[in-house]
Amino acid sequence: MHELTWGLPVILYLFLAGLGAGAVTVSGSVLLRKGGFGSSRFAIARCGALIGPLPVMLGTFLIVFELGQPFRALNLFKLINLSPMNIGSWLLGAFIFLSLLYALTFLPPSAGPGDRLRGVRRALAWICVPVGISVAIYTGIMLGAMPARPFWNSPILAGLFLLSALSTGVASIILAGVFFRRNHRDPAVRDDYDNSSYLLTASDALLIGGELIIIFLFLMFAQLTIGDVRYAVNVILPGGNLAPAFWGLVIVIGLVIPLVVEIVLIVPKLLYGRRFVSIPAIEVAIPTAIIIGGFALRYIIVVAGQITAPAAL
């Protein structure tokens, strides 16, 4: 096996930056949304905004100290070129700065839906959503930019990373909600909690469905190709070195089980208009599975790209 040039710090960065950018993007979208979430809107937006910057900064710390010359990291900002890593660095820097400002608007004790920071908060949300999406998507472009790595060299990888980032972002917001928002005395607030939980679960199911479609397309088109890509993708197909981890952790635990459970939960309300009741155990278990799956996805893709190579010399 070939030595891994990009190891665990890079894998963790891809996962953490995706999760954080996803959480902030979801937070901003929920905040800017007109209806649906009732009194929960602000609480959900606050969850996402406060979760977001930390993993992104932790991931950034990890990759900076993974560099051969960590103290030269600022050389990235001496110029702008078309390298995805250069553009990504500018985006990442902007995102950390903006998402920290956005999180700060939620911190004062007086912070609430109609406080005096409302305008600033909404403006920052408007900027944070596109920048967050860009941070989530550029990591996939960065890996996909190299013909020498046939496993990565696909435009659909960036789409997969984006959906996975948003999905782990929603999962982290649901998970935080169980601990910080759930136990409220006011029954009206609890109703809103259930309702917002329904919307988050339904959007997560949509994102997971999208991820499964992208993975299906990825595998299908690799199978329909001959040459480098097909040879490379064999490592995650049955019989490949990474197949057990890919099908077990990413597909079954990270995507299929959460999707089935979420569909079972949302269908009564979606189709028959019944009441959606959130169950705490499931609200802990499913997001945890999604987050494990999101990490496994980055891990397997980063490793698979590096242990495979173009077939012909």
Binding site: L67, A145, R149
Partner: peptide, 27 residues
């Protein structure tokens, strides 16, 4: 003097011609 040792070029080279010099920390 400019290289930060991010190893992106090592990934991109189809000939495996590059390496991170452990003494200098650059490619």
């Amino acid at each position: 003097g400019l290289c930060i040792g991010c190893k992106y070029c090592i990934q991109a080279c189809p000939y495996d011609a590059r390496f991170l010099n452990p003494l200098t920390g650059v490619v």
